[in-house]
Design a protein around this nucleic acid. Structure first.
Lengths: 124, 124
DNA sequence: ACTAGTGTTATATTCGTCTATTACACTATA
DNA sequence: TATAGTGTAATAGACGAATATAACACTAGT
């Protein structure tokens, strides 16, 4: 994993797990890799993994079963809500940042449209 | 100022100054408020201001004149480049984040369009 | 009952950020 | 030339994040 050194690692791991759940790489009820395994995979300390997971437990995105493992919530609505929330956060951040740079609504839309066209061109 | 506790304050101050320059609140060649004044205004320590400004000096976005103050670069192209760079960073971050959530290019465009329409409605 | 696999907790250490404080260096001007 | 205003630098302390390491608690399967 490529971590941004401006943001706490445990927080970025949280977002990583969010993505796994939202994209279905981890399905509802599925067992999450063991904390020691995650620590190896992400090359961080077990305590750092634990810090991330414990917050996910608090949010009830995962359930922790001592001796057995951590499991993704069965609550499908919760997953959908999370996805919507994360999308909105991204939109808001982009929008607010550009507005603070005096970019108009129309310009923002144009920039995004151009950016996406470029991505599609570069893809092939 | 409202600082995000997940990101170093000195870094957020850097971005704050960027915005002042880009939006023309600080014009090319203009003197930046004194470090002690900035410290009071932003309610942070002088050293934290200094940390931000010293990076801006390294990037040649500002020029420091001992005993006189800090001054915005006269290089207008540099300012324009900075604005473009910051805009691109925002677009990229939003785009990459949503793509990681399996949101398609078309959906991204729709979301942004809807979001902007909502902002315009809420504005009045 | 043992053991391997799992989550949980705790300690000590290092590191970066931020603060408070003090001191020093330079400039402009009264 | 004295002084107020400016940037610069250094110290010591507090704090959170992350690490290495160890120990503890529970579960499932042999």
């Amino acid at each position: 994993m490529n971590f941004d050194d401006k943001i706490p690692i445990y927080y970025q791991i949280k977002e990583y797990i969010y993505r796994q759940i939202i994209t279905g790489k981890l399905e509802p009820g599925e067992k999450i890799p063991a904390v020691r395994q995650l620590a190896v995979d992400l090359t961080v300390n077990v305590n750092t993994i634990q810090r991330a997971l414990s917050e996910l437990v608090t949010e009830k995105m995962i359930e922790s079963k001592r001796g057995r493992g951590n499991f993704v919530t069965e609550d499908i609505n919760k997953v959908k809500e999370l996805k919507g929330k994360l999308i909105m956060e991204q939109l808001k951040q982009m929008y607010d940042s550009l507005r603070k740079l005096n970019v108009s609504d129309q310009e923002i839309l144009d920039y995004v449209s151009q950016y996406i066209n470029k991505q599609e061109r570069d893809q092939k």
